[in-house]
Amino acid sequence: MQIKVTINEKMMELEAPYDEFLMDTLRRYGFLSVKKGCNTGSCGLCTVWLDGKPVLSCSVLSVRVNGRNITTIEGVQKEAREFADFLVKEGADQCGFCSPGFIMTVLAMKRELSNPTEEDIIHYLTGNLCRCTGYQGQLRAIKKYLGVV
């Protein structure tokens, strides 16, 4: 089915079979930042924004985003790099495979929560698994980025 979607603020017409999920469509159209870690809705690697809200692109049917707004990390590079700088300075960028989805969730959190506590941060990010870092360095980076202690 042909769908019209705004991706990273650009209108696009995409062709997607009814049973294709957004992650696969996005990768097919070259948004290669979107990673698949599990395909069961458990890992958060595939996180993109749908109308500004973080969702699992592995679990959203592409045909359902017809007429809506998608943001991938390619579309928020400036902001992503600002945060990535904190992450990298902590050494908390390991294999990086989980990072695009993780950063998209962090940036969504920044928009959604004001003055989050450590507990709020952890709660918001629980759906993002990372096997490399042990999460601590990521947390340090977020706190510095948000300026909370």
Binding site: G41, L56, N128
Partner: peptide
């Protein structure tokens, strides 16, 4: 519902 996986799944 708040324990269920993560925000992104709960948004769906």
């Amino acid at each position: 519902v708040k324990h269920i996986v993560g925000v992104q799944l709960r948004n769906i």
